[in-house]
Design a protein around this nucleic acid. Structure first.
Length: 557
RNA sequence: GGCGCAUUGGUCAAGAGGUCAAGACGUCGCCCUCUCACGGCGGAAUCCAGGGUUCGAUUCCCUGAUGCGCUACCA
């Protein structure tokens, strides 16, 4: 039995040849420099900030260059499949503005380079595995789990590299020993399970000097010196499904991906991929190995974002807290490209897509997620969103995540006016951060949420009723801001308070307090809080009736 | 254990063999001010360690430390 016969025995009938697949998926007709990128999530139904981070890189690279960005579902791990996962992935990404040109959608595949779901591509993988078998570049391996762990123990005892490679699986050189060849043949005919392994041409356990190396240019990290692979990695599992390594190489070649963006955890397996591309006679894509997003763990150390331990870093966290997608996008861009903030400062109103994103400006060390920074970015991002639009967005957020706030949305014009408070001043207020915070922040406008939260200031507490009563008497809703505050000042002076805080600071013994203490009494009666935006502006939005009733309610006698 | 990647203030970071080592967030103080926010000004705070190379190294090289990752028929 020779290689060809073995390959035929394993895969007797396949509908197409490798050459036919090459012809079916020809080089893409795209303008020069156009990049083709892809996102290949596993359908676990869970997508976190780190995934989004990578997805932005893919998206920007493709769309900035007039290329194509497609979605491929990498479901080669049958144990991890979650129902509806694909829908969740697509909708989560779409929510944050990540849209695909091609690949899997809710309504089937789009594009001519599919199928875009790996579990549907079995014949394709088998076709190329067969080619490798024919060329003696792969072999069927019948080692059982027990045998493999026995090998591992031996290797550990001998302090040599673990794994299956030259010298460890007798099936590797089946054709050198007629007995093994016969065994292989009969086992295949008997239908015994086996995997297909790459027959690596690398030299096992070579010294550093002897190890052949490949120079690869990583678009983020620059020149990489990659050692030769020598591991006979599994390319087709017992189930007939390919491993990530093989699926990556076959798919990204056939789908004509030009740039492979993936996490740095893939760096160690790059040698395998290089060998596979070489064996199949294909060109390497441009690799972009991104740094991992980290967070501070309970032990105070940096660690990679984890799906299990960091549910607050799942995209759902941001959605349920009500972070605006534009803010998350803006934040991610600031950590993705070190010159983004600078650009944003110079172009405060430009659409984010105008920014010239480059992989060279990406950091190769992992960044710590920084909620303070997100909040800061969010404030200025929200400032750029029209109040009516913001109100609508808040309503849909509330419907999905916080129906208890439905009272906020009874009058959308009223809400827009509230949100716009102080936003168009020469120095606009930046109070709004995320939906939950906004609900709390504007709560006092609504009787459902209004309550007295703060203490009346000690300096004026004794005069509270007097102040409120006189305020009510002199109140004229049609006063402008200046007239209104003039009256407060008058009232303060009449009662023995300084007209200006500075006067009080200079001669505290001469006054009970200053005008600020008096206005705080009014502020608390109206808003329940000692701090708020401009009282006059708030009153104009609240309406005279509410103003009068709230003040009256706070007069005890 | 082996291998890979990384290492500039609390965080994100720019940076070049000679710089007063940018900037942003946070923090502290002051100013503006009826409170808060905004804004302005200012402060504290950084080149992981040790060896080389060099007139000079945070920058180049080596070693180590630390962190992260990989070492699956997971991705």
């Amino acid at each position: 039995m020779n290689n060809i016969e073995l390959a035929d025995l394993i895969y007797p009938s396949l509908p197409h040849t490798p050459e036919e697949y090459e012809a079916m998926y020809p080089a893409r007709d795209l303008p020069a420099g156009a990049k083709v990128t892809r996102l290949g999530p596993s359908p676990t139904g869970f997508i976190h900030l780190g995934n989004l981070y990578g997805a932005f890189v893919d998206e920007r690279l493709a769309h900035q260059s007039g290329g194509t960005f497609f979605l491929r579902i990498e479901d080669t791990d049958d144990k991890r499949f979650v129902e509806n996962a694909v829908e969740i992935i697509i909708s989560s990404l779409a929510f944050f503005g990540i849209n695909f040109d091609e690949g899997v959608t809710e309504n089937g595949d789009i594009g001519t380079y599919g199928d875009y779901t790996q579990s549907h591509r079995g014949e394709i993988y088998r076709t190329f595995a067969k080619r490798l078998l024919e060329q003696g570049l792969a072999y069927p391996c019948f080692l059982s789990e027990d045998e493999i762990s026995a090998i591992r123990e031996q290797q550990e005892a001998a302090k040599t590299s673990p794994g299956i490679y030259a010298g460890w699986s007798k099936y590797r050189d089946w054709d050198k020993d007629p007995a093994v060849a016969a065994e292989v043949e009969s086992k295949i005919r008997a239908g015994e399970p086996f995997v297909i392994r790459l027959k690596s041409h690398g030299v096992p356990n070579a010294s550093a000097e002897e190890t052949a190396r490949h120079t690869v240019i990583d678009a983020i990290r620059g020149e990489l010196s990659v050692p030769d692979n020598f591991q006979d990695v599994v390319i087709i599992k017992q189930t007939g499904i390919p491993t990530y390594h093989f699926a990556h190489v076959v798919d990204d070649h056939l789908m004509r991906t030009t740039h492979v963006v993936r996490g740095e955890e893939w760096l160690p397996s790059l040698p395998i991929h290089i060998e596979l591309f070489e064996d199949l006679g294909w060109d390497l894509p441009v690799y972009c190995h991104t740094a991992q997003l980290m967070k501070i763990g309970e032990d105070g150390n940096k660690r990679k974002l984890s799906k299990r331990k960091d549910p607050e870093l799942s995209l759902d966290f941001y959605r349920s807290q009500g972070y605006h997608p534009a803010a998350v996008r803006e934040y991610l861009l600031t950590i993705l490209n070190s010159n983004y903030e600078e650009w944003r400062l110079a172009n405060p109103d430009a659409p984010t897509d105008d920014f010239d994103f480059t992989t060279e400006k990406m950091s190769s060390s992992g960044a710590l997620f920084d909620l303070d920074k997100l909040n800061d970015v969010s404030k200025s991002t929200l400032l750029r969103i029209d109040a009516a639009e913001l109100a609508g967005w808040l309503r849909s957020w509330s419907e999905e995540f916080a129906p208890e706030y439905s009272y906020v949305f009874r009058d959308m014009d009223h809400l827009a006016a509230i949100l716009d408070l102080g936003r168009h001043d020469a120095r606009p207020r930046a109070d709004l951060v995320y939906a939950r915070q906004i609900m709390e922040y504007i709560g006092y406008f609504f009787d459902e949420a209004f309550r007295i939260e703060d203490e009346y200031p000690a300096e004026a507490a004794a005069d509270k009723d007097v102040i409120l009563r006189s305020y009510l008497e002199s109140y004229d809703h049609s006063d402008d801001n200046e007239q209104w505050f003039g009256k407060i000042r008058e009232l303060a002076v009449d009662l023995g308070y300084a007209a200006k805080p500075k006067d009080f600071k200079k001669h505290p013994e001469e006054y009970k307090g200053h005008v600020g203490h008096v206005s705080t009494v009014i502020r608390i009666a109206l808003m329940g809080r000692a701090t708020s935006p401009d009282v006059w502006a708030i009153q104009q939005i609240m309406g005279e009736q509410t103003v009068r009733s709230r003040i009256s309610a706070q007069i005890d006698c």
